[in-house]
Design a protein around this nucleic acid. Sequence first.
DNA 1: GAGTGGTCTAGACCACTGC
DNA 2: CAGTGGTCTAGACCACTCG
Lengths: 260, 260
Amino acid sequence: MLVMVAHAAPAAASATTAAVSPAPTFSPLYRQIKSLILQRLESGEWRPGEAIPSETELAQRFNVSQGTVRKAIDEMAAENLLTRRQGKGTFVATHEDPRAFFRFLRLVPIAGGVEPARSIPIECWRAKAGPEAARMLALQVSDPITIVRRVLHFSGKPVVVDEIYLPGEIFGNLTLEMLRDFQGSVYSLFETEFGVRMIRAEERLRAVPADRMSAELLNVREGTPLLSVERVSFTYGDKPVEWRRGLYSTAEHFYLNELG
Amino acid sequence: MLVMVAHAAPAAASATTAAVSPAPTFSPLYRQIKSLILQRLESGEWRPGEAIPSETELAQRFNVSQGTVRKAIDEMAAENLLTRRQGKGTFVATHEDPRAFFRFLRLVPIAGGVEPARSIPIECWRAKAGPEAARMLALQVSDPITIVRRVLHFSGKPVVVDEIYLPGEIFGNLTLEMLRDFQGSVYSLFETEFGVRMIRAEERLRAVPADRMSAELLNVREGTPLLSVERVSFTYGDKPVEWRRGLYSTAEHFYLNELG
DNA sequence: GAGTGGTCTAGACCACTGC
DNA sequence: CAGTGGTCTAGACCACTCG
């Protein structure tokens, strides 16, 4: 049945759209399988850290060959949505994995050493979205939001000061205690406690002078150049669910980026 | 013949190394094909922008199935070493491609618009490598190097001031005139005139105050926070061939980074 | 229409994990 | 040993480009 849909789709697509636009040409079978798997992930049917059914079983279930399922999973593994483990199975990616840590925090000490960051939450409060937060989070102005202020320490020293803006609809129950008590990264908490998995993010970097409050928190002089990092994070379906403004002290750390 | 090597390799490898270390387990056939193709690229047999032989021909040549060649090329396309064009062939990736531009210059205007950067070379001279340049370029101290200073303009305004350090052995003939006259990016010139193709790079970002010279060139006040971007670029075989220090004015631009 | 990459299949066998 | 992902093959057909 799925096969028929698969073969019918491109023909129908080109028939209806060819005269309008040449863009949406063709959707191969493995992409349809991919979006079926994606649906299961979005719906929470297969949860972070769990194994999904084996390739052969998915192939039977979807009535396609194992190679087609494989190609779908290949792409999703490349996008860090799934993780393959030979001999064990294919697993839904999770931020519990320490590898995921440095994918989202690219700060490295100038002088060697790989100490993990320690997050120290300062405040957590509710507010109404201003125009900027609303735009970034695709909300309406004055929709409820939750804001977290915190500091990140590396080997005991404050290096990053952060403000995290979250949609109140999802994160209305977030409290300072949860942030304090949770073992693991913030994204790990979001995933475990709120069922929200961050897939990708965009960061915008600038150099700015330290304001008084940040200077105090980071133990630098007011006006010291800091790295300003604005991040919007997206979950499934490219839905923005976090907006973050961070100031990084780059006296003893740098932001490492790989250009592929 | 190659097939025999392929099948013999893992057995031999595990026989000799199993007792020593469990690391270098197994090299599948498609990776051997991949490194054969890589050799052709490194040697310049297939040059940037040119088409490589078709998959079927490579399969015959290497005595493997087309699917195996395909998988090798798949990986190399994912690494931006090759570019596939349906119906036309597979091509060696090149920095002439405008897509390659923003892979290596992630500066975006805050207020919309996608004006291309204009590179204005200021100086180009020979020098001897200091300890830092030597380390970054994997040279000996006092080996010859070539240094370029330049400014990047966006819509007529200076935004980036750059110093580029290059191994003299390769870039001994680089002149200010070449930089001025060449149409296209610096990497495009390196590729065309010096046969050096940049594959990947690492950037280290910090926020620093503008020194007097940079402040003048960028038309900002001394001490203004600037984004310091240090880059080491690598060619085939992870050989470093460029070290760059740039100062970016982030008054009207930001550095955009995608976290996947 | 010939040639290229892109998709899909079916089946064999290998490497790894865990019972 | 059974079950999983990983590799390799051979062949069919589709989509795209170009002369």
